[in-house]
Write a protein that binds this DNA or RNA. Structure first.
Lengths: 331, 331
DNA sequence: AAATATTGTGGAATCGATTCCACAAACATA
DNA sequence: TATGTTTGTGGAATCGATTCCACAATATTT
């Protein structure tokens, strides 16, 4: 393997001088510099990052923990982060937990052992053990999506977004609202959005029907099933005239079922989701949804992390992002 | 920082012994082992991967170069790779070129400097410079999506897939086929698929109309524009009764334009794509497309790479994956 | 011409692990 | 008891860079 020592020999200078050329530090005569650069060019020498990191304690690598690779949301967030990190010469080391909470902790340790300069966690379910692990991580850290006490977080305004969407449905004259959520262990998506829905219903003095509130699992199929349940429970009695799915995919699954049932959207029933997935534009009719601007979340998180890295201060910074309503024909 | 030396002191053994406990190598008395493990548990010590890699020349990191983060295809491929790598304790270091060919080379070097154990390139456009860079990379390497001479590749059967799809349209009784491709510098998507289309047309003795062959750019908008051009050129004369877009998004863009024009799909005109994007199932009508099983491509590439890493042989292995037709209502 | 300031270079320690080797202790065998 | 074998441990070199420090060679000032 090509090392700094060999290069030094070939250029007839010392290792120190080569290092100086590489890092633009200290005094190097123009002549020596030229010779070194020539040899580097010639040999294609690339300094070992490991040796460098060992010495400098900096790796220029950011660890990112995703709940699931290749979901649209993850992709967008990572994209946003990448914009910022790339600009500053940082690489992303990706890990995916596939929704396994145990792995989240495992990866935190792993990333630490790789001496990443910082960690970004795209969080779903937060338990106290994980919190503890994070707090004693002692590394620049930012969470996205969930509010975790004691660390910097970039979160969405889930409560307000859900409330606003529900109020929009009500403003459209809908009075019998159904709801499809997810498990409340996901505080942001499961709990906050549900509360937003409930509070909007209450605020407007409408009837909150527990039997019209179902749980899905983030995918289209579960939205379909949940909708089926709701319709089943409604039986021949009063019937929902709107359904709010906490994710686009859930809403789209619901739409599928409704269409099969021969119901017209939005004439018979309105449908709304959250997430502004690309697919939401192309279903029929186009789905009304909330854009969370995930790229921005990624960018913000990256910026906050870089700030932490550069200032060495571990400030607990909280950023709550805005949502943007995309009103389309489904309501 | 916690080092092996400190642990050794605390456990009252030598550094060597700690290392042996960590790596299950050499003789360690039960007593010494217990003490060491206790201290490690207590302190939460995690060995530095850099020091380790410096010594062992193994990083357990695979560099992945993507053309674009967060496209559905990339996501699926990375997902597939991750399945395999995770199982073997490898991490993925992600880089994205955002379609900048210059960056592809830059990242190859960068990954080398990080001493990744191998590199997977999801290729789009291959020029000779890049080929050269790859050949002198001297690292386990696999390309996905494009066939590059001299290195292992996992490719799709683009020619046959496009030909088969075209023949399906012909079998449905369509005779006036339009085509929306992409730039041919992307050999697989741009050139091979186009050839498949052309050869199918010729084989069946149909008329190949150059003016009905347009170029798009992978996104929905460009499919829309390309379709507009084709219709414009057709003017009042003979009119296409089918259009084949080389990606689902292009096809969907075309569908959008056709619908706006008041044309009925598939009554007036058939539409087909390639890629089996999720969205293809939910447009109206559902799009006929080819499933390339990208996860499998990622898995295969990962397996081939691991083989190269483990055997140290640099065999040039070529895998061509099959396609699967998904016939839906758009034709 | 002597004293001082500025530049360029190499020696050597260092980062945190692994691993070869030598040695010592414990045990078994003749 | 003397000898050989098995185990357990630590010393020290090593991986490939960075960086402090000392020194030498110039250049500049008195």
């Amino acid at each position: 393997m090509l090392t700094i020592k060999k290069i030094a020999e070939m250029a007839q200078v010392s290792r120190t001088t080569v290092s100086r050329v590489l890092n633009d530090s200290g005094y190097v005569s123009e002549e020596a510099r030229k010779r070194v650069l020539a040899v580097i060019e010639e040999t294609g020498y690339v300094p070992s990052q490991h040796a460098k990191s060992l010495r400098t304690k900096k790796t220029k690598v950011i660890g990112v923990i995703l709940p699931k690779l290749s979901t649209e949301t993850s992709g967008r967030i990572v994209n946003g982060m990448n914009d910022v990190f790339q600009e500053h010469g940082y690489q992303i080391l990706l890990t995916s937990t596939n929704l396994d909470v145990q792995k989240e902790m495992e990866y935190l340790r792993l990333l630490k052992s790789r001496q990443v300069d910082g960690v970004i966690l795209i969080a779903t379910n937060i338990n106290s053990k994980l919190k503890e692990e994070i707090n004693q991580l002692n590394l620049p850290f930012v969470a996205i999506g969930q509010d975790i006490s004691g660390v910097s977080c970039v979160t969405y305004n889930d409560y307000e977004a859900a409330k606003a969407m529900t109020e929009l449905l009500i403003a459209k004259g809908r009075k019998n609202l159904a709801f499809i959520g997810v498990d409340e262990s996901d505080r942001a998506v499961g709990y906050d959005r549900k509360q937003g829905f409930i509070d909007a219903i209450k605020k407007h003095g409408l009837l909150l029907r527990e039997e019209w509130m179902e749980k899905g699992k983030f995918d289209i199929e579960s939205g379909y099933e949940a909708m089926k349940q709701i319709i089943h429970k409604a039986g021949g009695g009063p019937f929902p005239d709107a359904v709010f799915g906490v994710t686009d995919r859930i809403a789209i699954g619901a739409m599928q079922f409704l269409r099969e049932k021969g119901l017209q959207i939005p004439k018979d029933i309105s449908v709304a989701g959250i997430g502004a997935s690309e697919i939401s534009r192309f279903v029929h009719p186009p789905l009304t949804t909330m854009d969370y601007e995930n790229e921005k979340a990624g960018q913000q998180a990256a910026q906050i992390l870089l700030e932490q890295i550069n200032t060495n201060k571990e400030r607990e910074k909280k950023v709550k992002l805005n949502y943007r309503l995309l009103e389309r024909d489904s309501i």
